Structure formats: C-alpha cells, structure tokens
Simulated scan of single mutants.
Amino acid sequence: MHIAEGFLPPVQAAAWTAVAAPFVIHGARAVVRQVRDDPDSRLLLGAAGAFTFLLSAIKLPSVTGSSSHPTGTGLGAVLFRPPVMAFLATVVLAFQALLLAHGGITTLGANAFSMAIVGPWVGYGAYRLVGRLGGGLSLAVFFAMALADLATYSTTSMQLALAFPDPESGFLGAAAKFLSIFSVTQIPLAIAEGLVGVLMIRILRDVAMPELVRLGVLKDPAAAEPVPADRTEA
C-alpha cells in the first residue's frame, strides 16, 4: 500500500500532504503529551512504532506502483489512540522511504493519510464498537488490526483511482479494479494481522499489565475486587 516515489501527479501529491499534515502535527503533540504525562510509557510507545515498522516492511508486489503488506497500526491505535499513531506511522513511512525505498518522499503525504490516519481511526473505531458489544479484548483487537489494514488498502485504492481513472468507467471503474486486485493479497493479510494482534495483546497482558491498566486498555484488577465487609460490628 506504499505508493511509490513519483507515482502520483505532483498536484495530488501536494494535496495529500496538505491534508495529512494537520493530523501529523496534532499527533506529534499527542506523543509529547503522552511522554510528559506518563514517562513510563516510553518503552511501550517505542515498541508500538517498531511493531508498525516491522509489519509494514513486509511487502508483496501488488498494483503497479504499490504493494500489499500488513500495517501494524491497529495495535498502536488501541494502546495510545489514533492521534499518536498518526505521528508514529508517518515517522515509520519516512524511514522506510529513505532506508528501504518502500514508498516515497513525494508520496509520503498520501501514504500517511491512508496508513497513519485512516487506518488507525477505523481500527480504533472497530475496537471500541466490539468492546461495547461485549466482544472481549482479543476479539476487539483482532477487528482493530484487520480493519485498520483493510481501511488503509481501500484508501490507497481510492487514491490510485483518483490519480489514474479508467478511460471508460472513470474513477469508480478504476477504484473497483484497484480494490479487486488488492483484495487477493490484502484480505488474507488482514486476517493474519488480526491474529498477530491477538497474540501481541496476550503477550502484553502477561508482561506489561500495569502499563495496559494505566493506558485504559485493561481494568485495574484491584479496583474490581469487592471491599471486605466491616466485621467489627457485634
């Protein structure tokens, strides 16, 4: 889903950068606030960024000028909320463009909009919805990861369709074509990513429960315990 360097028309590349910039700036402020208010969360914050980097660096050739891969942004959105991931995932995309030639600098705004903004917000929305419906943490994280991935690929498909409309069917025809081509690889990847997310949240529940409680992902077990009755009365 990383659109390659120079693949978008310059005007569209600039427009996507302008649209993404406010979210990224807001996300940078959210990261500063998170570290200031909870310094102990820095390790988990770094782990969320590294997790996104590793998963989204696994790429499979797909639509010309793009690729299919997991995103990893759903887990970070669950842990730290989507604004934080808008900044972290954009940093990840910038490093991948510079170090791995995965994506590009001129297309960074478009890639950030799909993977760092739309994906985390859709994933977080799915997480909250499944939680409200009583689905449990593992199921909520599965849908957060899978739908963040699918939302990212859907947005990229729209971006490519806008840049390269079909000569006969226009934007809608091109969007349908890109979506259908991406789906061959992206749907299985989204399911696999959801399962990886479930595994990761279970590991974090074992090794970093205090951090998850502070972040509001888990309830404090002590607070849930009943208060003993007063046995001093006759």
Rank of each mutant, 00 (worst) to 15 (best):
A140V: 01
L137C: 02
N111T: 08
F164M: 10
A50Y: 02
L199D: 02
A86W: 06
G109E: 06
L79M: 08
L150H: 00
F164S: 00
P10S: 07
G74P: 01
H26Q: 10
G27F: 08
L199T: 01
I191N: 07
P22S: 02
P9G: 13
L108N: 05
A15P: 06
F7S: 08
A20S: 04
G123R: 01
T232M: 14
A176W: 15
R231D: 15
G170E: 02
F23W: 12
R42P: 02
G131I: 06
P61Y: 06
A126L: 06
A116L: 11
P82G: 03
L199E: 04
A208K: 12
K59Y: 13
I191H: 00
V141L: 11
G123C: 06
F95C: 14
P188L: 06
S67N: 07
Y127F: 14
P226F: 12
P9T: 10
P210M: 08
I203L: 13
A86T: 04
G131Q: 01
W121F: 15
P221D: 13
P10R: 03
T185N: 11
T152A: 15
Q159R: 07
S66R: 00
W121C: 09
E168R: 12
R33I: 11
L172W: 15
V84C: 05
A47K: 08
E211P: 10
R33C: 12
I58T: 01
A144V: 07
V130Y: 03
D230Y: 14
D220G: 10
F113M: 14
I117Y: 04
A161Y: 01
G135H: 04
T71D: 08
G74S: 11
